[in-house]
Nucleic acid binder design. Structure first.
Lengths: 345, 345
DNA sequence: GTTAGCACTCGTTGATATGGAGTGCTAACA
DNA sequence: TGTTAGCACTCCATATCAACGAGTGCTAAC
């Protein structure tokens, strides 16, 4: 048995209706509200077939039908009509805050959450190969040095170094030169113990001081490596009863509070989809590798900050999600982000 | 009618029992589980009096009694026996992360949330009069200056300044001197337009450049002024059905996601309690100035980072909160924090 | 292949009954 | 005068039951 034109149309109608109402869809509804001009009895026969094929299912005997994961999948892959989603004044809303990467991303998350009524997350862009741009040591007061580390993409890390005794101004100047000579332009992943050791050896008399400094630098570099994630609209998850009782909902919300789980999730996804970085991905139900999300769907997109610098945006909601709206909202947003980033650099 | 010894004992027993079970307490329960050796009938008479006095109330006729806000208040003010709350390895848990103020505070919030099963928040310490410690401009690449602003308490702000044309090295050096001469040691609140204007006037030929720089400085200073807040365990709120249905719970959670509301709340509280900075405050039900928290209680404490530098820690839970545990947990934590901070400086 | 008709299923809703925890009151007791 | 046993009463919680209706599957006719 195969899916002919008519079955497709019916399936589509079922899904559309279910997305709107959230209630099992009966044969009579389909019969009345499509242009197929078929009686409910005929529709029933077709629905029975569709169920056998696994595209829809009955919550219980003699209830209407709801889409199965397989049904949603087919819908998302082949039947969605993307509508152009207007989100006026995205730009205004974003650009005010565009100064700082963190606030910008937080803002993006919020904007999406407000526009879709789902829960959103945005990861900080992950530089594949970031290089160290520049280091500077300064004496802040009698006992503290401040190390400023600038990384490609204008990410700045500050570290204070407590000292017993402050070196001479001149020494600090020298140290600055040494550090930059060795480290400037290096890929962060290359800044490892071996390199640092080498500097220590070359630094002779400043040994103890430079050791402290290098520790600080290593710390700053390591810090940049873990990637952050911003979420918004988490409470929207409570709006959808189908996501489970309080217990379940709490579990799900915890996932969003405890960002480390999300981080893993996102990394998992990234590794799966090599080669199609630019697309928009839809994960339905169990396709998402996180048990708490069994009843959810997730739509993700990858944005490009600049050549080779990617971050992810994700929207999480019930399976009964307005996929069309979400996908096109994401698309609109990506375009906007692109143009904001491109213009800046 | 006054509260005699016996009434107090009964009230205390009612509250204790209710805190444990969460269910209206009947006269028979009290009669059996206190050492008063009174029949349930006598207890009933006393309870009737207590209700008239406003310390307890009946959810409905012929149900047991639950404490009223007034009852809780009396309990908290006069009847609590503080138990010493052991939280072993607080120190270990905190010190690992103690390097960075933000992670430390986030960690504190989490630790409290895990220990109490309530929702917690921690504000970043607010310096009453922070002074600017030091400014430094550096040329990062051909078109960008980096301004590093260090504020009392070793808070560092970084701002990039986009330039058409990079000034000479020498000029930058001069600018550094000028900026520090004018601004070093100034209270942040004193760094206003007037002062900046004065610098502009004195800077003659560098006019346009310095104008950009001062904007950046002003921004950095302003940024430090808004104060941040860290939360943890927000989903714990879902554990307490008495906090309302999904709708209500969502509202409450939103408050915690939307930190700006919390900020206001905390500021409100701070202004109310002039002079008793060091105490632990308990706000029961409507005493907290936030409508979403009507069914909650909140316990706050003020920690002192160093002389004159205060931050707040708050725990939010249902009115039926284990006040004794919360208060003593907070007290333990304060002591620990004190010793961590003192030792560092 | 399509459709009308019909018996059947099963969740939802609302009404009704039952049980029990707890009260307030009264009368008896020390 | 304070305490207590006893009892009628209230009201929630829970279970039970019937009525309803949306929806199905099947059959027979078109």
């Amino acid at each position: 048995m195969e899916l002919d034109e008519r079955k497709l149309k019916i399936l589509q109608a079922i899904i559309r209706t279910y997305l709107e109402t959230g209630e099992p869809v009966g044969s009579r509804t389909i019969s009345k509200y499509t242009d197929l001009n078929l009686s409910s009895a005929t529709i029933r026969n077709e629905m029975s077939d569709l169920e056998e094929l696994g595209y829809i299912l009955q919550p219980y005997t003699s209830a209407g039908r709801i889409p199965s994961d397989k049904g949603y999948r087919l819908y998302v892959d082949t039947m969605m009509q993307e509508k152009v989603q207007e989100m006026d004044n995205i730009r205004e809303q974003l650009e005010e805050k565009a100064g700082k990467m963190e606030t910008l991303l937080q803002q993006v998350a919020k904007l999406l959450a407000v526009n879709t009524n789902y829960t959103t997350m945005v990861t900080k862009p992950k530089y594949q190969h970031k290089t160290l741009k520049f280091i500077q040591l300064t004496d802040v007061d009698e006992r503290q040095l401040l190390a400023v580390v600038v990384i490609e993409g204008n990410i700045v890390k500050n570290k204070f170094i407590q000292l017993e005794k402050m070196p001479e101004k001149e020494t600090i100047l020298k140290l600055n030169i040494v550090l930059n000579t060795f480290l400037q332009g290096l890929d962060l992943t290359e800044i490892n113990m071996a390199v640092l050791q080498k500097i220590k050896e070359q630094s002779g008399e400043y040994g103890p001081v430079i050791s402290l400094i290098l520790d600080a630098v290593a710390e700053a570099v390591a810090e940049e490596d873990d990637f952050e994630i911003y979420t918004s609209g988490t409470t929207n998850l409570l709006r959808y009863p189908e996501l489970g009782d309080r217990e379940k909902a709490a579990k799900l919300l915890e996932t969003f509070e405890e960002k480390s789980q999300l981080t893993e999730l996102i990394q998992d996804l990234s590794s799966q989809e090599e080669g199609k970085e630019h697309g928009i991905q839809v994960y339905i139900g169990e396709e998402a590798p996180l048990s708490a999300m069994q009843n959810c769907s997730m739509v993700t997109a990858t944005y490009e900050l600049e050549e080779g610098v990617y971050g992810k945006i994700g929207i999480v909601g019930p399976k009964r999600m307005d996929y069309e709206k979400v996908v096109s909202t994401l698309q609109t947003l990506m375009t906007e982000l692109d143009s904001i980033f491109k213009r800046k650099s």
